[in-house]
Lab assay of single mutants.
Amino acid sequence: VCKLPGCTKRYTDPSSLRKHVKTVH
């Protein structure tokens, strides 16, 4: 789960979560 406020994205893969945080936030 993306911990950033207002973000409801969920990821099972930690690397995918990191990529999400880098690109989306």
Rank of each mutant, 00 (worst) to 15 (best):
T23K: 03
G6C: 03
V21P: 02
D13E: 09
H25D: 11
G6T: 02
K19Y: 14
Y11V: 09
S16E: 15
T12D: 13
K9A: 15
V21E: 15
R18F: 06
S16V: 08
R10A: 14
C7H: 01
K3F: 05
K19D: 15
D13K: 00
R10E: 14
K9W: 14
R10P: 12
R10F: 05
H20W: 01
S16I: 09
K9E: 13
V24H: 11
C7I: 00
C2E: 06
K3C: 05
H20F: 00
D13M: 01
G6Q: 00
V24M: 09
T8R: 06
Y11F: 15
C2K: 03
Y11Q: 10
Y11E: 14
S16L: 14
C2W: 02
K22G: 11
Y11C: 14
R10I: 06
K22Q: 14
L4A: 06
S16D: 15
T12K: 09
S16N: 15
G6P: 02
H25K: 05
T23V: 11
K9T: 07
K19A: 14
P5F: 08
V1D: 07
P14L: 09
K9F: 15
P5W: 01
L17I: 04
Y11N: 11
G6D: 10
T12C: 08
S16P: 06
P5A: 04
K3Y: 12
K3W: 10
P5Q: 05
T12H: 07
K3H: 08
V1H: 09
P14V: 09
C7F: 00
P14G: 07
K9S: 09
L4D: 14
R18H: 15
R10C: 12
K9Y: 15
Y11H: 10
S16M: 15
K9Q: 05
D13R: 00
T23S: 10
T12P: 13
K9M: 10
L17D: 12
V24T: 05
S15H: 11
G6N: 11
K9I: 06
T8K: 05
G6K: 00
S16F: 01
K19L: 10
T23N: 07
K19Q: 15
P5Y: 05
V21F: 00
K19H: 13
K22D: 14
V1T: 08
K19W: 12
R10G: 11
K19M: 13
S16K: 11
P14K: 09
Y11I: 05
P5C: 02
K22S: 13
K3T: 07
P5K: 04
R18Q: 15
V1N: 06
K19T: 12
R18K: 13
H20T: 01
V21D: 09
K22R: 10
T12Q: 11
K9V: 07
V21Y: 02
V21W: 02
V24R: 03
P5M: 06
L17Y: 08
S15E: 15
H20S: 04
C7L: 02
K19C: 12
V24W: 04
S15G: 11
D13Y: 00
R18T: 15
C7Q: 04
C2R: 00
P14W: 02
C7M: 03
V21M: 13
H25T: 10
Y11S: 13
V1A: 03
K19V: 10
D13C: 02
V24D: 15
K3S: 09
S15Q: 08
D13S: 06
P14T: 09
T23D: 14
V21T: 02
S16W: 01
T12S: 14
T8W: 02
R18G: 12
R10N: 15
C2M: 05
T8Q: 08
T23G: 04
T12R: 02
C7G: 06
H25V: 03
H20G: 04
H25N: 08
G6F: 00
C2Q: 05
R18E: 15
K19I: 12
K3L: 03
K9G: 09
Y11R: 06
H25G: 07
L17K: 06
T12A: 12
K3Q: 05
H25E: 08
G6Y: 00
P5N: 10
C2N: 11
D13T: 01
P14R: 06
R18V: 13
L4N: 14
P14C: 07
K22F: 09
P5G: 04
D13W: 05
V1I: 09
L4K: 02
L17Q: 06
Y11L: 10
V1Q: 10
P14F: 02
D13L: 02
R10H: 14
Y11A: 07
T8Y: 08
G6E: 09
L4R: 00
Y11M: 12
V24E: 13
K3P: 07
L4V: 14
V1K: 03
K22H: 12
S15L: 09
K22P: 09
K22Y: 07
S15W: 01
K22E: 15
T8H: 07
Y11W: 01
H25A: 06
H20L: 00
L17T: 06
S16H: 13
K3D: 11
Y11G: 11
L17R: 01
C2S: 05
G6H: 05
L4S: 12
K19R: 11
K3V: 02
K9C: 12
R10L: 09
S15R: 04
C2I: 03
T23P: 06
V1P: 03
S16A: 14
S15T: 08
V1F: 07
S15K: 10
T12N: 13
T8P: 01
V21C: 06
C7E: 08
V21I: 03
L4W: 10
K22W: 08
K19N: 14
T12M: 10
S16Q: 13
S15Y: 04
H20Y: 03
R10D: 13
V24Q: 15
K22T: 13
H25I: 01
T12G: 09
T23A: 09
V1R: 00
G6L: 01
L4Q: 13
T8F: 09
V24K: 08
L17H: 05
S15V: 07
C7T: 04
S16G: 08
K22I: 10
G6A: 02
P14A: 10
V1E: 13
H20A: 03
P14M: 14
P5D: 06
K3I: 03
H25L: 01
C2P: 05
R18Y: 08
V24I: 04
P5L: 05
S15N: 12
H25S: 04
K19F: 08
H20R: 00
T12V: 07
D13A: 00
L4P: 00
R10M: 08
R18W: 07
G6I: 00
K22M: 10
H20Q: 02
V21N: 05
R10K: 12
P5I: 06
T23Y: 03
P5T: 11
P14S: 11
D13Q: 03
R18P: 08
H20D: 11
S16T: 07
V24N: 07
G6V: 02
C7P: 04
T8D: 14
H20I: 00
V21L: 04
C7D: 10
R18D: 15
T23L: 06
K22V: 11
C7S: 05
K19G: 07
P14H: 04
D13H: 03
S15F: 08
V24S: 10
L17V: 04
D13I: 02
Y11P: 07
V21K: 00
C2L: 02
C7W: 01
T8I: 01
Y11T: 07
L4E: 15
K3E: 09
K9L: 02
K19S: 13
T12Y: 01
L17M: 12
S16Y: 05
C2T: 01
T8C: 10
C2D: 13
P14N: 12
T23H: 06
K22N: 13
S16R: 04
V24L: 04
L4C: 10
C2V: 04
C7Y: 00
T8M: 11
P14Y: 07
R10S: 15
T8E: 11
D13P: 01
P14D: 12
R18N: 15
D13F: 03
R18A: 15
V24G: 13
V24C: 12
V24P: 11
C7V: 01
P5S: 10
R10Y: 05
Y11D: 12
K22A: 14
T8L: 05
T23R: 02
T8V: 06
L17C: 04
P5E: 13
H25M: 03
C2F: 05
T23Q: 10
S15M: 09
R10Q: 14
V1W: 00
T8S: 11
V21S: 03
D13G: 00
V1G: 01
P5H: 09
T23C: 08
L4I: 14
D13V: 01
V24A: 12
T23E: 15
R18S: 14
L17S: 07
L17P: 08
C7A: 04
T12I: 03
T8N: 14
Y11K: 11
T12F: 03
V1Y: 06
H25F: 01
C7R: 00
S15A: 13
K19E: 15
H20P: 03
V21A: 07
L4M: 13
C2G: 06
G6W: 00
R10W: 03
V21Q: 10
H25R: 01
T23F: 07
K3N: 11
L4H: 14
V21G: 08
T23W: 02
P5R: 01
C2A: 02
L17N: 09
L4Y: 15
K9H: 08
K3A: 01
V1C: 03
R18C: 12
P14Q: 10
V24Y: 11
V21R: 01
G6M: 04
V1M: 11
R18L: 12
H25Y: 01
L17G: 06
L4G: 07
R18M: 13
R10T: 14
V24F: 08
L4F: 15
S15C: 12
T12L: 04
S16C: 11
R18I: 13
D13N: 10
C7K: 00
T23I: 04
K3R: 05
R10V: 12
H20K: 00
T8G: 14
S15D: 14
V21H: 04
K19P: 11
V1S: 02
L17A: 09
S15P: 03
T12W: 02
C2Y: 04
H20M: 05
P14E: 15
K9R: 06
T8A: 12
C7N: 08
H25Q: 08
S15I: 07
T12E: 13
K9N: 13
K22C: 11
P5V: 03
K9D: 10
V1L: 05
H20C: 02
P14I: 13
H20E: 06
L17F: 04
H25W: 00
L17W: 03
K9P: 02
L4T: 05
H25P: 09
T23M: 07
K3G: 08
G6R: 00
G6S: 06
H20N: 08
L17E: 12
H20V: 04
K3M: 09
K22L: 12
